Simulated scan of single mutants.
Amino acid sequence: LDLLGEHEDDPDRAEAATETYVQLVRRLAREREAGTLQHVNISIKLSMMGQQIDEDLCLEHLLRLLAVAEDEDVYVRLDMEGSDTTASTLRLFERAWEQYPGRVGPVLQAMLKRTAHDVERVCEMGASVRLCKGAYKEPRAIAYQNMDQIRERFTAYMKRLLGGGATYPGIDGIPPSAFEFQMLYGMRPQTQQALADDGYNTLVYVPYGTEWLPYFTRRLTERKENVWFVLKNFFRR
């Protein structure tokens, strides 16, 4: 689950977002205990928790959340947002990892040119990684623009992560239990079901909340492929 929202610049609202995440963790843990859920994890956006107000404030909020997640055995994924927060997100991840190793992990975007270095770092740490291509429109100086090149980098990073000590991502020859596919809710649901039916760990990423319009608009406008995908599937239905 991922609570929608981003770039909070009000300390009170950042505190409120943190409390919402805390309550979400507790609710998911209760649902798991009741037998309605099996695997429980959440994705969070640090920019909702005061990242761009003050990193130390954001870390305080993050550690509070991780303390509850540790008690409830819930995994916390740090979403990667635009490149203006990439370095900060990875700094906060490493600071949180010192206290909660194995409880928190980052997302890395194959389109960013810095990711080659970041992959080496997470391999060194042995952290769980969500590897994605990247959904943000970024300048040519820091990001690959050609989709074939992005796919090539994605494959190379996936192989490195599998062989370098970081947990998850997957490739032929690795047992299905050793990695998982993570896909956005509503995107190729037949593929999601087919992967699950074939015995692969398949996680469906579900955004929710009232702040849906900025998220939806960005997903559609930043990459023309997203507009075409939505239209194609709309008329298919």
Results as ranks from 00 to 15, higher is better:
L112P: 10
G209Q: 02
A127W: 00
E211T: 03
D84E: 05
P11R: 04
L131D: 06
N233Y: 10
I44G: 08
A69P: 07
E33Q: 12
R30H: 05
E72Y: 03
P139E: 13
Y75S: 13
A143G: 15
P207Q: 09
L162I: 03
T85W: 00
Q190D: 15
E120F: 02
N226P: 06
A143W: 11
L28T: 09
Q190W: 10
Q149P: 02
A29D: 01
Q109R: 00
E94G: 11
R121A: 11
L3F: 07
G209M: 03
F179L: 11
G105N: 13
L24R: 07
R188Y: 06
E33G: 09
E222L: 06
E55A: 10
R13H: 12
I150K: 10
P176F: 14
P101R: 00
N226H: 15
F229I: 02
E211G: 01
R121M: 11
E120R: 12
S83R: 02
L28A: 05
L46W: 03
E15D: 15
G126M: 02
V227K: 15
D148F: 07
R77I: 10
P106Q: 08
R153W: 08
T85S: 08
T36D: 15
R95Q: 14
D84P: 00
V119L: 04
D79A: 01
A34S: 14
Q149H: 09
V107A: 03
R153N: 14
Q51I: 04
Q38W: 04
L162K: 02
